[in-house]
Design a protein around this nucleic acid. Sequence first.
DNA 1: CCAAATAAGTCAACAAGGCTGACATAAATG
DNA 2: CATTTATGTCAGCCTTGTTGACTTATTTGG
Lengths: 199, 199
Amino acid sequence: MQEHKVEPSGKDPKQDRTRDVDAPVSRNLKAAQMAGLASSPPDPKLVTFVELLFFAYRDFTREADAVLAEYGLGRAHHRVLHFVNRSPGLKVAELLDILKITKQSLARVLKELVDQGWIIQHEGTSDRRQRLLYATEKGQALSHRLDALQARRVDDALRAAGLDNGDTIARFLFSMTSQEEREKVWALLPAAAPIARGP
Amino acid sequence: MQEHKVEPSGKDPKQDRTRDVDAPVSRNLKAAQMAGLASSPPDPKLVTFVELLFFAYRDFTREADAVLAEYGLGRAHHRVLHFVNRSPGLKVAELLDILKITKQSLARVLKELVDQGWIIQHEGTSDRRQRLLYATEKGQALSHRLDALQARRVDDALRAAGLDNGDTIARFLFSMTSQEEREKVWALLPAAAPIARGP
DNA sequence: CCAAATAAGTCAACAAGGCTGACATAAATG
DNA sequence: CATTTATGTCAGCCTTGTTGACTTATTTGG
């Protein structure tokens, strides 16, 4: 039932455009774009990775969403809870920089998490303007449950990936983050981080 | 918690592929015990992969979003355009199954894409109820541009990942998708798919 | 042949989670 | 003490997801 065996020639009756679908990969894409010229299609093999990433993330998040829904929480709550639990004493400003959302977007979900007792805020000791964030026991338990769910999925996938010890995959994902962010991401990783920083 | 009977960290006769690191997780462990949880905290190494996936996807999508904004389009438009361009003649029902969104959500963005000339629909030849979807030349050009952007990022990351030819990473991502979806995802991949289906 | 199933479109209403910009505090800092 | 900083807040808007009911055209099966 899933038989889109799409002809590469793309011959549809009414549309008779000629497309060079099977053209070789050009490494001059950027130059061609800047010149406003039609570029050849990207390498299908690389596009496959793009699609795999989409499917992986789609299913990866759907699983946790179902659990969160039991508590009337959403994906945004999950992200906040996760990083707070992951880094107890996290500052609001740091969380904003991790999530790349605005103060308002964070405030909405954070308020709910605090009101419902998943997260508590403490005044900073050295700087009393700060509201350091901590997961309550209840929050830790939920975060733990969600982490376990996703960790299991990762574990299964690592196994299915083969004999690789995970370093290659970790380096791939790490390198998928923007250059400017890598320092911060690196700093956040636990000491046990399985990444040998790539060449 | 209901279906959560399995050990989250999967500590079975599994061969210890991961490096033996004495990660101090006492803080979380203590919390879990106080919360009455029987399971051990998730493996920090695996949680690192969860976080890496978040950061990778965060930045991966942000890049394309900026381009889309030039045209007043959003991420939802991108996904539709991508898969239509990728599989010319795609049926609406198939697209719904790929994206896992409702007919309404799709209808909204699809209508805009059609109205603005990125996508055209025509009647199916064998079944005239169907509205087969095709990217126009303009749509193909935009899809190529976005694909090129993301393909380049993937390419760079694959290089940074090391000597791996990509198969391991492709199998990892493929295995991150839900079991029930893999047949369909598999069918969608191009012939050039770099995946040797894992053991 | 006709009833039922199917593919797609549509309407109305709603929710989650992004965004902007302006403004309010309290505390630290030069 | 003036300014900067960390955080919170108000008001409102946009995108993209949701549900459920209903319509239309077409295919299919008894």
